[in-house]
């Protein structure tokens, strides 16, 4: 590691050049991506995706149960929706990886809505419910999110609903 060395004035900022140990380890390369490696990885993800479907349905059912357990009030403090947020957060990450794009998009929208609120702010339970219903519908219908008009309409509708409520 080389550093800037001593200076008469106190250093405001020091650059450090770090030896590239990784490059030494992987040898010469840097050409186009290893197509075989990428293909193997895609195949591996496809295999995992086959197991993801049932788990995704289970997560959506758990999320729905959590929603049913929320107090029957029009506005609910965000903290009481933490379980719903956490499940949606995991759905957002996993569903997209395994090709369940529409579920990932709806989960991401739900996270965005809850994330836009302060800890003490209240969430409009109708907005949360609309996302839960959408997730259940997509799961029941087996929609994958490949860009159909109905799917776009669903995402646009949820986005508009959120905006309308947040702009109030």
């Amino acid at each position: 590691m080389t550093t800037g060395g001593p200076s008469e004035k106190p250093a405001l900022c020091e650059f450090i050049t770090v030896p590239n140990e990784l490059l030494a380890k992987v040898g010469p390369g840097g050409g186009p991506p290893d197509a075989q490696a990428l293909w193997r990885a895609e195949q591996a993800i496809e295999r995992l995706a086959r197991d993801y479907g049932p788990r995704c349905s289970k997560d959506i059912a758990t999320l729905s149960d959590a929603f049913e357990a929320v107090p029957d009030e029009a506005m609910v403090v965000r903290e009481r929706l933490r379980t719903i947020h956490d499940i949606a957060h995991e759905l957002r990450g996993e569903a997209g990886i395994y090709g369940y794009t529409l579920i990932g998009q709806i989960a991401a929208l739900l996270c965005r809505y809850l994330g836009a609120l302060d800890d003490t702010a209240k969430a409009d339970i109708r907005v949360v419910g609309a996302h839960v219903d959408a997730l259940q519908l997509v799961d029941a219908e087996g929609l994958e999110g490949i860009g159909g008009a109905g799917e776009k309409q669903l995402i646009d509708g949820l986005t508009r609903l959120q905006q309308k409520v947040l702009d109030r």
Partner: peptide, 29 residues
């Protein structure tokens, strides 16, 4: 020629075991 990643040691940190599994499959591939 692509890099030979065989000797690279990676630490993956995630509390979702399924994400860890996906990362492992990708890295091993």
């Amino acid at each position: 020629m692509a890099y030979n990643l065989r000797q690279v040691h990676v630490l993956v940190v995630d509390d979702n075991q399924h994400i860890c599994m996906a990362a492992r499959q990708i890295l091993e591939a």
